[in-house]
């Protein structure tokens, strides 16, 4: 049973907007918080981090059974041990890259400074000032700074806002690697579905200051790296035969042999058919069995090579039907080393 972050907040921000939410999140893996602009995602993160304590309202927050906000008062922001990655990196302009990363590390006992710098490829930048950094570099420094402060939980508030799509696809693997290596739970605010499919283990949805509910978690298949190729790796789905479907999938990803990889499947790039579709543009075609047909909520559970996957309401066929699943696009990420045995 993972620890939980429980919150009940009722905060009036301005005349028109009230954040009124109550939920309990498991502190494990990545919880995505999504919703349209102005739905209160950022307000929620800031309130949880204790950054808006001057906003009047009702707040109860407990983290791992310790009260952050409660009848006994409020824990100040600097004692909450949150690694906050902001939309804008908010780097300290008068400090070097190393000074920025070391700011939190100096204030909390941290030993993993070098590992973080290496993982984010920041070694060559350490002595530079932050003014000449590119957008992507600045984001990496912001991420490294949050990780180096030895956080108990990571808050990422749309950390890719403002990057072009090329920079986004460069930065996303760093985030994926960071959340899996840091082995701390993360709250990830975003409305970009690719980021959510890549990273999220569960998805909470906000609308107009309220929680509208949990969305179906992104589909994800577990795999392990079997070989390194020159630009990336080849992975094998867990449960796949050495010469069967899913035995060797090429991915443009930096990973080590034997490393666990989660392969996120965007909903629109997964097709089901009763008969094998034959040769085509799909990355892979896998035989699957429906173990629980789509119910009232429109979710079916299928078995893929022994892995159980929840599929949002596309499969309306009887139990135990065998189908072919064509996968046209995948969004892989390294998984925490301890997430599987």
């Amino acid at each position: 049973m993972p620890d939980r972050l429980h919150f009940r907040l009722k905060l009036k921000r301005g005349r028109l907007f009230t954040l009124d939410v109550e939920e309990s999140l498991p502190l494990q893996g990545v919880t995505a918080i999504t919703g349209p602009s102005g739905s209160g995602k950022t307000s929620l993160l800031r309130a949880l981090a204790g950054l808006d304590l001057d906003v009047s309202g009702e707040r109860r927050v407990s983290f791992c059974n310790a009260d952050w906000d409660g009848p006994g008062g409020h824990l100040p922001a600097h004692e909450r041990r949150i690694g906050f990655v902001f939309q804008d990196p908010n780097l300290f302009p008068h400090l070097s890259v190393a000074g920025n990363i070391g700011y939190g590390a100096k204030r909390r006992q941290v030993t993993s400074f070098d590992a973080i710098v290496d993982a984010l490829d920041l070694g060559p930048l350490l002595d530079r000032g932050i003014e000449g950094l590119s957008g992507g570099e600045a984001r990496r420094v912001g991420l490294a700074r949050a990780l180096a402060s030895n956080p108990a939980v990571l808050f990422l508030d749309e950390p890719m806002t403002g990057l072009d799509s090329q920079r986004k696809s460069e930065f996303l693997p760093y985030i994926a690697r960071a959340v899996s290596q840091a082995r701390v739970p993360a709250l990830y605010v975003s409305h970009a579905s690719d980021e959510i499919v890549t990273l999220a283990d569960r998805v909470l949805e906000l609308g107009a200051g309220h929680i509208t509910g949990w969305r179906t978690a992104p589909m994800r298949l577990n795999a392990h790296v079997v070989a390194e190729t020159s630009p990336g790796v080849e992975v094998r789905l867990d449960g796949a035969d050495a010469d069967g479907p899913g035995a060797s999938i090429p991915l443009a990803l930096r990973a080590l042999p034997g490393e666990a990889i989660g392969i996120g499947l965007p909903v629109e790039s997964v097709h089901f058919s009763l008969h094998h579709p034959g040769a085509g543009s799909a990355i892979m075609v896998l035989p699957v069995t429906v173990t629980r047909p789509a119910g009232a909520r429109g979710q079916a559970v299928i078995d893929v090579l022994g892995q159980s996957v929840t599929v949002p309401g596309v499969v309306r066929v009887p139990n135990a039907t065998t189908l072919w699943m064509s996968i046209l696009r995948v969004l892989p990420r390294p998984m925490a080393g301890d997430s599987r045995t």
């Binding site: 950054l51 600097h78 906050f84 902001f86 939190g104 700074r145 402060s149």
Partner: peptide
């Protein structure tokens, strides 16, 4: 001095005085 920059310092463990 941008407020978010001060917020960042707070989340990194700086007391208000320290920030």
């Amino acid at each position: 001095v941008p407020r978010p920059t001060m917020d960042a310092a707070r989340t990194l463990g700086a007391t208000p005085r320290d920030a």
